[in-house]
Simulated scan of single mutants.
Amino acid sequence: MKKLFYSLFITLSLFGTTLNAQELIIGEETVQPGIVFIFEGAIKDDVTPHEMHLAESETDVHLEARVNWASDESIRVPKGTPRGGFIPYITITAEVINEATGKKRSNIEIVSHINLIDNFHYARNIKLPGERDQRYTVIFHVEPPLPELLGLHRDWRDQYGNQLFQATSFRYTNVDFEEIANASRR
Rank of each mutant, 00 (worst) to 15 (best):
H121I: 06
H121A: 05
H121K: 08
H121Y: 13
H121C: 09
H121E: 04
H121N: 06
H121M: 07
Y122W: 07
Y122R: 01
Y122T: 02
A123T: 07
A123L: 07
A123R: 05
A123C: 05
A123W: 02
R124I: 03
R124N: 11
R124K: 14
R124W: 04
N125F: 10
N125E: 12
N125Q: 10
N125K: 01
I126N: 04
I126P: 06
I126F: 13
I126Q: 08
I126Y: 06
K127I: 06
K127R: 15
K127L: 09
K127Y: 05
L128Y: 03
L128K: 08
L128W: 04
L128S: 04
P129M: 06
P129N: 03
P129R: 07
P129K: 09
G130K: 04
G130S: 03
E131W: 06
E131P: 01
R132F: 01
R132I: 10
D133M: 05
D133G: 08
D133A: 13
D133W: 09
D133V: 00
D133S: 14
D133N: 15
Q134L: 02
Q134H: 09
R135W: 01
R135M: 09
R135E: 02
R135C: 02
Y136F: 13
Y136V: 03
T137V: 02
T137N: 07
V138H: 00
V138P: 07
V138R: 01
V138E: 03
I139P: 04
I139S: 03
I139G: 02
I139Q: 07
I139M: 08
I139K: 11
I139L: 08
F140P: 02
F140G: 03
F140K: 03
H141M: 07
H141R: 12
V142Y: 13
V142S: 15
V142G: 10
E143S: 14
E143P: 02
P144V: 05
P144S: 11
P144A: 10
P144L: 02
P144F: 09
P144T: 09
P144C: 10
P144I: 01
P145G: 12
P145E: 12
P145M: 05
P145A: 05
P145W: 12
L146A: 14
L146I: 00
L146Q: 15
P147K: 08
P147Q: 08
E148P: 00
E148K: 11
L149G: 06
L149M: 14
L149S: 15
L149I: 00
L149A: 14
L150C: 13
L150P: 10
L150W: 13
G151Q: 15
G151H: 14
G151V: 07
G151T: 10
G151L: 12
L152R: 11
L152N: 11
L152M: 09
L152V: 07
H153D: 15
H153N: 15
H153V: 12
R154P: 04
R154A: 12
R154N: 14
R154G: 09
